[in-house]
Design a protein around this nucleic acid. Structure first.
Length: 259
DNA sequence: TCACAGGCTAGAG
DNA sequence: CTCTAGCCTGTG
């Protein structure tokens, strides 16, 4: 099916650092594993995209996944209203980034792996975890869908994070209501709850809030963002001005900085 | 060779 | 409270 989608660039979103399993086929094409399916999206230009799914699937799954109900035009207006030239440049370079609505569990595990780590290795580990679970369509293993002992296998490249994954899988397996509870908490409460778990610090907690729970006010600060804030916003970043959208703004700044 | 990569934990001060 | 060594491991 063909669909018109504004503020969406497959390459920018794939490289924005929020998802680690998107496969970039070429400049205009990506394949996305989610919901136990694999969706291929091809950009046709002029905000038109070809998606290999049915209308029903699009309505019930992918529209939500791609965050199509959020008004990114409004965010763009806010960017220009700020008269922050650096941010405006960043926005013009990365305005095709959308904050996806990915599966919470996959986001939790992915960002546990991401700490003090580089992207190729993160992707390799996540793929290895999925392969070890051996589910249809390389689906991401839910709690109890994988033998936690495989995390000790050095070939997964998890390093010291293997303990964090083991404990997280065991905890979520024994507390099936925990994920549901996280979803109904406010940003502050969800963040505090996440921080109680081993292996989740402030940065990872904010990434999970932003990318797994869609709390757009979350503003993850990693080494790059820390440097960029010092470089361009020595007097402090105006979180109040971007209230409720800080997370998207962070994505524009981050993407601009690493490219 | 060695610091670093999209940090966190635990322990010291 | 703040500060930081050490953690796995591939990369340059």
């Amino acid at each position: 099916m063909i669909r018109e989608i504004d503020h969406f660039n497959v390459k920018q979103t794939a490289e924005s650092g929020q998802c680690f399993r998107w496969k970039v086929i070429d400049e205009n094409t990506v394949s996305i594993p989610a919901f136990g399916k694999i969706l291929t999206i091809k950009s046709l230009g002029n905000e038109k995209f070809e998606l290999d799914c049915t209308e029903e699937e699009f309505k019930s799954l992918w529209s939500d996944y791609l965050d199509l109900d959020t008004d990114y035009c409004k965010i763009g207006e806010l960017v220009y209203k700020s008269k922050d030239n650096h941010l405006i440049e960043a926005f013009e370079r990365g305005c095709g980034i959308r904050i996806l609505r990915q599966d919470l569990w996959e986001v939790i595990i992915s960002f546990l792996i991401s700490q003090n780590n580089n992207i190729p290795r993160i992707k390799g580990s996540i793929e290895a975890v999925c392969r070890a679970a051996d589910l249809p369509n390389m689906a991401f293993p839910k709690p109890r869908q994988i033998d936690v002992n495989v995390f000790d296998d050095r070939s997964l490249g998890l390093g010291y994070r293997n303990v964090y994954l083991r404990e997280m899988y065991e905890f979520a397996g024994e507390n099936p209501e925990w994920l549901k509870k996280l979803k109904i908490l406010s940003y502050e409460d969800a963040r505090a709850e996440l921080l109680r778990r081993k292996g989740i610090g402030p940065k990872v907690a904010d990434c999970i809030c932003l990318f797994g729970l869609h709390h757009i006010e979350a503003f993850p600060i990693d080494t790059h963002v820390k440097q960029l804030l010092a470089k361009y916003y020595g007097n402090g970043f105006d979180h109040e001005f971007f209230k409720g959208y800080a997370g998207v703004i962070q994505q524009y700044l981050f993407y601009y900085e690493i490219n």
